[in-house]
Design a protein around this nucleic acid. Sequence first.
RNA 1: GCCCUGGUGGUGGAAUUGGUAGACACGCAGGACUUAAAAUCCUGUUCGCCGCAAUGCGAGUGCGGGUUCAAUUCCCGCCUGGGGCACCA
Length: 965
Amino acid sequence: MEYDFRKIEGYWQNKWKETEAYKVSNNSPRPKCYVLDMFPYPSGAGLHVGHPLGYIASDIYARFKRLKGFNVLHPMGYDAFGLPAEQYAIEHGIHPAVSTEDNINNFRKQLDNIGFSFDWDREVRTSEPQYYKWTQWIFLQLFKSFYNRETKKADSIEILIKTFENEGNKSHPIPNSQFSTPNFTSAEWLSFSEAQQQEILMQYRLAFCGYGEVNWCEALGTVLANDEVVNGVSERGGYPVVKKKLRQWYLRITEYADRLLEGLERVDFSEAMKEMQRNWIGKSNGADIDFAILDSNEILKVYTTRPDTIFGVDFMVVAPEHEVIEKITTKKHKQEVEDYLTYVKSRSERERMAEKKISGCFTGAYAINPLNFREIPIYISEYVLAGYGTGAIMAVPCGDERDLKFAKHFNIYVTNILGDLFNGEEANPTKDAELVNSDFLTGMLMRDATEIVLTDLEGWGKGKRKINYKMRDAAFSRQRYWGEPFPIKWINGIAYPLDESELPLELPKVDEYKPGPEGEGPLANIESWTAQHLETNTMPGYAGSSWYFLRYMDPHNNDTFCDRKVSDYWNQVDLYIGGTEHAVGHLLYSRLWTKVLFDLGYIGFDEPYKKLVNQGMIQGSSRFVYWVSYKNILWPPNTIIPHINISKGWVDLEDQLQSKVSEILKLHKLSELSFDINKSHVDVNIVDGVELDIKEFAKGINKNSPTKQYFIMEDGSILSEDDAYLGKSTFICDAEVEKMSKSKYNTVNPDELVQRYGADTFRMYEMFLGPVEQSKPWDTKGIEGVHRFLRKLWRMFFDELKGKIWNEEKATDAELKVLHRAIKKIEEDTERFSFNTAVSAFMVCVNELSDLKCNKREVLQPLLIMLTPYAPHVAEELWLQLGNTTSILDATYPTFEKKYLVESAKEYPVSINGKLRTTITIDLAATEKEVEAIVLENEIVKKWLEDKPVKKLIFVKGRMINVVL
RNA sequence: GCCCUGGUGGUGGAAUUGGUAGACACGCAGGACUUAAAAUCCUGUUCGCCGCAAUGCGAGUGCGGGUUCAAUUCCCGCCUGGGGCACCA
């Protein structure tokens, strides 16, 4: 009986389906374990080998935990709303729901191939009304809540209204400091119109409406996503893009900044991941300082984290969006300022931050330093962003590199407050300098000065301590069709929530996906929609994915998003696997939603993910073919143009290449032409390693084009497309590691590999490739080794001639040692997500057992159980063949027993001065003295000692010995 | 530009707490079995040097320094690949 993986895998996949082997119950006496993959977006391109990497890892872990006696929830579903489907609809007229459904079916088929243990009864799709009903419901909870700074949690807006009625807003200051009515009494509140009251409440709601800038493309009449804008123009068509203010929904995530920071202390994410989130939140301690403006009543408020440097301020910079510009710009500089603002309007925030070149312009106005009354010029520059701090900075060139560059560019005098620590060339951001040129602070350490400046400024009413966050409130609307509609009606400019009984508010069918007037979403084109005064924006991609992990727990509940008893049972996600690209987007948003739902009492935990593992990207290994293009040639009609492909080795041999090309041109009676060498991607699937399959390559050539293909082979021979099948010479491609993508022709489809080697081999190979967390290029070649391993395993049970060869004999100590070493290693490695080393431990185990000629059930059966998470199909098949009547999926994981591994002696590495010179086997019970004697008697050690005295002998028991001379 | 992360043989990678660098595979070379091939098995494989041989000698984990009896691992500086930077998901 041979290893017929196709038959085995087909059989068991059906069997498991029939027996509902992966159905998970919400009621179980066993401990729970929740293993989750990041929500996939079902793209039209289908799966490539990079996608299932995380799914395989989580599947192995889920199956492992099941064998260890846990009730494991391991669901899968689709983040089905999104821009690509809508773009596809615009281009092909196919409704996003239809293309999404197709994509999902394709995705599912591909996933099923790989043998995952997902409980498909729990599948969710964010674009289905039964699902987004609850996304809308949660949105309403956000809308009807505010962040109570006294209790530091979300509360019902009704409580806030009661408080306003009784005492105004004195105990709940308005979060928006720019708002026109910052303070009001109970009497004032009661006197406000409904519109005024609602406008005020909007400043408190966790989901609120405001105005924000979007990428507006006039020519396309639409708002563009950041990645649809390239170098300031639209990716499609290359039309200019400018910023435009539109009404937008936001989530007040800034109120949760401290709790999002605090929560990081309680979750098991990598330090790097936590660091990224902390940096994103960007909490800083500093001060707002007011600078008066010369000959003006305006005040310029700046935020700084370094009040101690106030005597080093040589100029001010305001963001181009700052409203003060208009008021302070002098006549003389008006034109210059306008030109600059026009330039900035075309720049994306990303471009502005990344720009190395200094740009800016002087307003003609001067600010006055509140401490020494010095007059300081006010500039505008794109490197100051409107959204951060107050949108204005005090520039201290001796302490900040960007400020220094700016000062040099505009020839601004640089004050040195750092003394010797500033060399005039490089800014020094130290906090430890002794201040000079700093009036009454001179001679003081910077760290100490901060406090004094703050106290002074506050005393004079010129400044205020302030904690600032880089994080901004999260924009929560899109001017798009394919997303959740907001359950909001606008009447007389007031947003009214729909009643919960009106949910779901279903997305209406449309015939076209064109944007509405003035950049509004496509919903604005639907009369029946606008007649009801419904909101025309839709929710962004992260709405549905911010809470999906809760829906998996209770996916069919029609009464609530997730029954509290059920979420109490499943609780947090124990293991979450996904890419680092979600570090600050999805992860922060879902943490926010979880905290709000917790505050409002709907769930019992405030962090969604207990442990997070980041999977690395599988990169593509691209292949290139070099080819010749001719310079300045007008081809006579009916000419056949020789298209010449060059094998890699010839590319740099210019002279010889010239004669090869001439040779080919002569065949076509063409004279010598000058040419360039180009490089194009070639489909990796027709390249074996780096060797091009010319036969396949020639098939792809358009027979109708007036060209004829030639190949300059690695050995210098020349083949034409007609004799491409002949000859023993090879054609070598160049190779490069790039992102895996269709456009680079470097995608590898898992379906083909599964077809060729089986799902078990594919699963193990994906793991064998390297650590899950690490990015690595895909190389199909190594898959053979894993496949050989599985066949070798099979042969321990079945011989081609003899059939069954396992036996019931008692295992020897040596065999049990091999087994238990494997149990220890594989269990530990699986537990710590080191799947690649676990696979190699399987290999080592099977290699050693076959060296021992061990075919004993006592050893093989536990091995099969350990293999189940990695290669479930073959494990289940062999398990059945061994005569077991229950499924291996629910077998008991073997227990490691130390007694089989006990050693009495150790082969110690012996170094002389840190260099390994020999090894000596010594009894582990030997004392240091005994060891020393043995080592110094050793011939090789003696040779190196050459009678020199031993300075020191380092002996680490069970580890190593080092003799120091 | 800012934040995060990686760099070890021809290739993917291993070395879990500072303690024998290169486990396990791929590839390559040689051999066995076979009429032949496939499959399988065995041997070798970091580089350089010496050699009849060895447990010989030297170098070696992106580059340059440092700490240590001992550094892929810790520290400082640099080079370089990848991810993110708020409307891709």
